[in-house]
Amino acid sequence: MEPKTCVVTGASRGIGRGIAERFGEAGCSVAVNYHSSAEAARAVVSAVEDAGGAAIPVQADVTDPEQVELMYEDVKEAFGSIDVLVNNAGINQDVFFENMTHEQWGAVLDVHLDGAFNCTQTFYDDIVGAESGRLINISSIVAKGGNLGQANYATAKAGIFGFTRTLAHELAREGSTANCVAPGFIETSMVTDLPEEIIEQVREDTPLGRIGDVEEVADVVAFLASERSSFITGEVIDVNGGMDL
């Protein structure tokens, strides 16, 4: 991947952190978005810089358009226009549907869907104006198969599919692309905090027989952000060890 200017939302931990660090290895300038974990975001910035890139931490609640606009101004001042936006920010509030509150439903949809809308709309002109603009959205295997206790999360992540494919049509008019990455069970705190018996069942249900690494997702995102993906748009790329075969 050649150096680009990138924004990664929800980049203070997990998959977002892995993506930011992978961009750093390519010499990119990276805006490390975070909601409340300032110390963790600063650690990611240091890791990106150690890898050979440039980085700044940018605080914003992606559900708040005004905060996203302030983030845009910070990124513009530091790096100028961006080339790549990765909508990765997300939360989960897992509970069986019969017990799910409207607040739990809305909070998850707000972060995943309103967050993607707010950030994409704010950085849209940059993506369109870039020589090879890239919009990359992070979804989940749960969007395809559902999961117990995750009606809100599965719905939000499935919505990302339609959002990506529609933006792919619209961005194509200007030569930019939009794609989606749908990870399976990846070694992040969301997975490693599960009971061991569930993790073992996931391994058994995965043809490759293991949990995925963050780096394996980040490599796919880096490919989609690169010139090598220039004829790929509107796709949902699974990184799940064959779990939905």
Rank of each mutant, 00 (worst) to 15 (best):
I56V: 01
D74R: 15
K76A: 12
P65G: 06
Y72G: 13
V62L: 08
M71A: 13
A54H: 03
A54C: 02
F79A: 02
V62N: 09
Q59Y: 06
G80W: 09
N88I: 07
V84S: 04
L85C: 00
G53Q: 06
P65H: 10
G80D: 04
A54Y: 03
Y72P: 03
F79Q: 04
P57A: 07
K76L: 12
A54S: 12
E73R: 15
K76S: 11
V58W: 13
V75S: 01
A78H: 07
V58D: 04
D64A: 13
A89N: 09
L85Q: 00
D61G: 08
D83Y: 11
I56R: 01
A89C: 10
L85E: 01
N88C: 05
Y72K: 10
K76T: 09
L85H: 02
V84T: 05
A60L: 10
L70E: 14
D83M: 08
V58A: 12
N87Y: 03
D83A: 04
V75E: 07
D61K: 11
A55D: 04
F79C: 03
P65A: 14
D64P: 06
A54I: 00
D64C: 13
N87K: 01
E77L: 12
L70H: 14
G80V: 08
D61H: 10
I56S: 01
N87Q: 04
Q67M: 14
L85D: 00
E77H: 13
E73S: 13
N87D: 02
A60G: 06
Y72T: 02
A89K: 05
A54M: 00
E69C: 02
V58H: 07
L85S: 05
L70W: 09
D64V: 13
D74H: 15
A89Q: 10
F79G: 01
E69A: 15
A78D: 02
D74S: 15
A89F: 09
M71D: 03
G53N: 02
S81L: 05
M71F: 12
A78Q: 10
N88E: 05
Q67G: 12
A54G: 00
Q59T: 00
E77D: 14
A55W: 04
Q67H: 11
I56N: 03
Q59I: 00
V75Y: 10
E77F: 11
A89L: 08
Q59N: 11
V62E: 01
M71Y: 11
N88W: 10
N87E: 06
L70M: 08
E69H: 13
T63G: 14
Q59H: 07
I82R: 00
A55M: 06
P57K: 00
V84E: 05
P65I: 13
A60H: 09
D74N: 15
D61R: 10
A55F: 09
